[in-house]
Design a protein around this nucleic acid. Structure first.
Lengths: 341, 341
DNA sequence: CTGAAAGCGCTTACAG
DNA sequence: CTGAAAGCGCTTACAG
């Protein structure tokens, strides 16, 4: 054995050298053993692992990132934390990535392209190993930042035909069309589409609604109730109360999100409007509580856990440099028929 | 001027040297100018800032952390992301810390002491500038990790008498006592306490309930409905339905959290149990939607935004090495009386 | 399979 | 007020 003596560090921090010293190997061998690189004698691997455990050694991620030009961080950019949809997604991503040794850095864009740009700029400086972003709607500069960084990136929630782009999601328009068709099938004709936030995915659902209504000869622009405000139960209640007053002939409301729909349902209850007898109410996403409403909410169940798991698996493969079978995974959705519509 | 020529980097990454070169100063001066250290000529500061902006330079956080032994990361440990309470808290913390140049690293403990220990171990390796943790209930090893790290730490949600500990919160027991007193004041006597998760703060609320009930001579252990399962609307509904069946004389239910209470309210509606006539229902936290319920939910409004802001301000002072006026801030709470109780 | 050298991109003392 | 040297704790080629 031939090991150079190491100078004692001034910081007092436990370093790789301490582990190497204790295991009686060189610093490089310790590093390789700890990272599970093959080409280290099994016996040494065991000795290093033991020494590291005994000392309670934790590698310095900053030193690691600096030396290797890559970190074990995966950056996840989502619009909002206050929407349970994204929390479910995040949890699924975490469950899949954590065992592989990755940490998640969450960025919240608040649906602002500008915020996404800032987040991306500062987070990319951390040399993330991977990137998970929501949807495709972003500034050209964001796109360029992602492309130039060379960091593997998977897009969440939507699907794309572009084979150069990786994504896991479903067709928001299809789902919007299907729910509208369901309402039409149950005999409804004056179907309103009530939406807030008006982010790209909401607009895709609107497009699906519009197509179905037009195909049925029922489309009326006055029944597109669009509000740019953030989505909330309170807003759903307001929309139902105010718009129904001016459109008393409406026989169904398709809310673009379950929180609006829940608010609408409760407002109807308060106002004494029978659901679904007078007005059918449908939502989107099947968020927590929708099955607890009275009447329980008919909605589109969107498989965010599956999206999280599948996107994480795809990213893992990308980060390992593996070839992918498909660049886009369509996880679909499910119409959950309950009593409200 | 006397500037050593720098070797060209192989990585192609934009570095401080590029900025220094472009501004015609040394690397160290550029570093100091960018960090806003005084003792740099104002003219040079301007030149460096200009060069950095023109080049689009972003400092490498890993190199920074390694060289300075400190990062601009604040670690926030919360039990759950799926509870809106903590999302509100997180947003407030972010709003306060972001302008000061800090990034937030979120750790989710799922109410597991073991997970908190793992998170702390791996996150402390990032040399965070500050630490925000939830409550005081943790393993001795966690306490030791925090103490030995020397990283400034503020505890969220609860209060403490210990002057060595920094915290922002309120008395959970007081709030529990107050809500129980309110129910007693409105003439209720058979008041149940329905709880899930059974984390430390829930148990403190229970203690407050118990005290108030005992003081009124109304305490009955059979009315403590405790379930260790995670809190949810569905569970709230189940608790109300099953327990009310075996305790038909109960005239009020104090749910330990609003999601349970909302579920209870909806279950009562479904079962045709008049609220508050037959059973008053109260919650805790004033979560989103509680004001939209029918009847609207009486609850305790907990000031999580204030907690987030105040804790962030305290941490900022601690990180700057400033002396604090108070080591513990009690932000209080408010009983919001609506129609359900 | 194992090790010595060099370097990642910054900042901290130390000089002047 | 400004700069050259040394070093933070790792890993990447390069040897053997």
């Amino acid at each position: 054995m031939n090991i150079t003596p190491r100078k004692s560090r001034s910081s007092g921090r436990l370093t790789l050298d301490d582990v190497a010293l204790s295991a009686g190997v060189s610093r490089i061998t310790a590093s390789r053993a700890l990272r599970g690189e093959r080409s280290v004698a099994p016996e040494l691997v065991a000795r290093v692992a033991e020494a590291a455990a005994a000392l309670g050694y934790v590698p310095d991620p900053a030193a690691r990132a600096l030396a290797s030009a890559r970190s074990h961080t995966v950056v996840v950019l989502i619009p909002l934390l206050s929407n349970n949809l994204f929390v479910d997604l995040l949890e699924a991503v975490h469950r899949a990535l954590h065992p592989a040794g990755y940490q998640i850095l969450i960025g919240v864009t608040h649906y602002q392209a500008q915020e996404e740009e800032e987040l991306l700029t500062s987070y990319l400086a951390h040399r993330p190993a991977g990137l998970l972003v929501t949807g495709f709607d972003r500034t050209p500069r964001c796109r360029e930042l992602i492309a130039r960084s060379g960091v593997p990136c998977v897009h969440l929630m939507e699907t794309s035909q572009d084979p150069a782009v990786h994504c896991v999601g479903f067709s928001q328009a299809d789902a919007g069309r299907a729910m509208t068709a369901h309402l039409l099938n149950t005999g409804r004709r004056r179907i309103a589409f009530a939406a807030a936030q008006l982010d790209p995915r909401v607009m895709q659902r609107l497009a699906g609604y519009r197509q179905a209504m037009q195909a049925a000869g029922c489309h009326d622009p006055a029944l597109e109730w669009l509000s740019p405000e953030p989505s909330s139960m309170a807003l759903g209640g307001q929309l139902l109360e105010s718009r129904l007053a001016s459109h008393p002939d409406v026989d169904a409301i398709f809310f673009c999100n379950d929180d609006l729909a829940q608010g609408g349902l409760l407002a109807a209850l308060r106002l004494g409007i029978p659901v679904p007898q007078q007005v059918a109410i449908a939502g989107f996403n099947d968020l927590a509580g929708s099955d607890q409403m009275w009447p329980p909410l008919t909605t589109i169940r969107t498989p965010r856990v599956e999206i999280g798991e599948s996107a994480a698996a795809m990213l893992l493969a990308l980060m390992r440099g593996e070839a992918l079978e498909r660049s886009c995974v369509n996880v679909g959705w499910e119409l959950v028929r309950r009593l409200s519509a």
